[in-house]
Simulated scan of single mutants.
Amino acid sequence: MNNFENLEIWKLAREICNDVWFFMQNTSLEKDYSLKNQMNASSGSIMDNIAEGFERNGNKEFIQFLSVAKASCGELRSQLYRCMDRKHIAKEEFDSVFSKTIMEGKKIGAFMAYLKKSERKGSKYD
């Protein structure tokens, strides 16, 4: 694994970002500027923190950035509720993206646990 684009957790984060973008472009969320901006930021935070943490080349820093990414999954889940409650998206659309954020949080958590136990501490320590 030599770049973050190969990480399964980054690929899923990108998919979630694209789902949020779809809502922003194709639903009434487009006019709910505050919520739209918050959802864009939190979904982007998942993706971006995985990438930035990976590029730090050290497990301890990577775990810290993964923790932020995982927290952003929770933030986005809360925003998805608001999005559905305000009738911007249907229950089926909510369920689809919500389940992806649950899966993403679990995958990030499992990866963090793996990194904590790993003997390899990152390429910056080679």
Rank of each mutant, 00 (worst) to 15 (best):
K70I: 03
E119P: 00
K91V: 10
I50K: 07
L76P: 05
E119G: 07
L29G: 08
E52L: 05
T27A: 02
G105Q: 14
E92T: 13
D85I: 00
S45F: 02
S42G: 04
K124H: 05
S99W: 02
K116C: 14
S42V: 00
I63M: 09
S99E: 12
E75W: 01
K60Q: 12
M47L: 15
S99T: 10
Y114E: 15
G122P: 04
S118E: 11
Y114H: 14
I46P: 01
G109W: 12
A13N: 02
Y125R: 01
K107D: 11
L115M: 15
E104M: 13
N3A: 06
A90S: 13
D19Q: 02
G58F: 03
F4R: 02
E15C: 01
W10Y: 13
E55L: 02
A71N: 08
K91Y: 06
G109H: 13
S123N: 11
S78H: 11
D95N: 13
S67M: 04
M103G: 00
A90M: 06
S96T: 04
A71S: 15
R56K: 13
C73V: 12
N2A: 07
C83L: 05
E61C: 05
S78T: 15
S99Y: 04
R82W: 06
F22D: 04
N57K: 12
T101N: 11
I102S: 03
Y114Q: 14
Y33K: 10
D95T: 10
E55R: 11
F54L: 01
K91A: 12
E15L: 03
W21D: 13
V97Y: 03
F54D: 09
N6W: 02
N3K: 11
D19I: 00
E52T: 12
D48P: 00
Q38A: 13
E75S: 10
K124C: 03
G44W: 04
A110L: 12
S67K: 07
F54W: 11
K31T: 08
K116M: 15
S96F: 00
S45C: 11
D126T: 05
K124V: 07
S78V: 09
E93G: 04
Y114T: 14
C73M: 10
M112N: 08
E15N: 02
M103P: 00
A41V: 14
A41D: 04
G58Q: 05
M1C: 06
S28L: 06
W10E: 06
K87M: 10
R56W: 00
F111S: 07
A113N: 15
L115C: 09
V68C: 02
S67N: 15
D32C: 07
N40Q: 13
E52P: 03
M47N: 04
M84R: 15
C83V: 04
E52R: 09
G105A: 13
E8N: 08
K107P: 03
R120W: 14
K117C: 10
N59F: 01
D32Q: 09
Q79C: 08
L76N: 10
M24I: 15
